[in-house]
Simulated assay, not measured.
Amino acid sequence: MRVLVAEDHRVLARTIAKGLRRESIAVDVAATGDEAERMCLVTAYDVLVLDRDLPVMTGDEVCRRLAPLAERPRILMLTAAGGTEDKVYGLTELGTDDYLAKPFDFAELVARIRTLYRRAPKPPDAVLRYAGIRLDRARREVSADGRPVDLTPREFDVLELLLKFRGEAVSHQDLLRTVWDENLDPRTSAVRATVSRLRRKLGVPGTIAVDTGRGYRLTP
């Protein structure tokens, strides 16, 4: 099981992460809402433990932005807003899968996370589309403006990640961590070379743009 804890209170975040690791649960930590969203797009987390009051992007907004994803993690809202109206709003309007008010008992948090993990995940979308590009995950087929495109497995994985971000920039580090081995030297030219080949195969000038300092993105 892999869990993301989105909590801006550093001591609490470290305490939760340390406790979950003792329970043999893999844990990553995000301190802001936008960081949590990006990490969920890049990594397939099973459960997201989400504070509502996060900087940059609130937990509520994170829920709304993750809602359309077919492979979003189960969301456990962990917050000081523990009134009945808050819980009802979180579960019905925001679409969270569970809601736990602070202060909380750690054993209960672990039990709720494990319960969410046992729930059957939603089936993923078989097809991703953006800007004339169509990627069929099940068949491992790609087309650009209706024209079949033959990709290597690595090129396919890079394009799949870019499609998930739908025009938002994907950093060099995100591509390395997701598509390549995490131990690969970050200075390697592998990403740049693969993106260059992918751009040529798609055959549309500017289909994959380079944002200096941010990464690569698909253009509309």
Rank of each mutant, 00 (worst) to 15 (best):
M1D: 07
M1L: 12
R2C: 01
V3T: 07
H9K: 09
R10I: 02
R10G: 12
V11K: 03
L12T: 15
A26E: 14
V27L: 08
T32Y: 00
E35K: 03
E35Q: 11
E37D: 06
M39C: 10
L41W: 06
A44S: 13
L48H: 13
D53C: 14
M57V: 13
V62K: 05
L66K: 01
L69H: 11
A70D: 12
A70H: 12
P73I: 04
A80T: 15
A81R: 13
G82Q: 03
G83N: 00
E93H: 07
L94S: 06
D97I: 09
Y99Q: 03
F104E: 11
D105E: 13
I113E: 00
T115F: 02
L116G: 03
Y117S: 14
P121N: 06
K122Q: 15
L128H: 03
L128Y: 08
A131N: 14
R139E: 10
R140W: 04
V142M: 00
S143K: 01
R147E: 11
P148Q: 08
E160H: 12
V170E: 02
S171M: 07
S171G: 12
D181K: 05
D181C: 01
E182Q: 02
E182V: 11
T188S: 14
A190D: 07
R197Y: 05
R200E: 13
K201M: 06
L202P: 03
L202R: 09
G203R: 09
G206Q: 03
G206T: 09
I208A: 09
A209N: 00
D211V: 15
G213Q: 04
R214A: 14
R217C: 05
L218C: 00
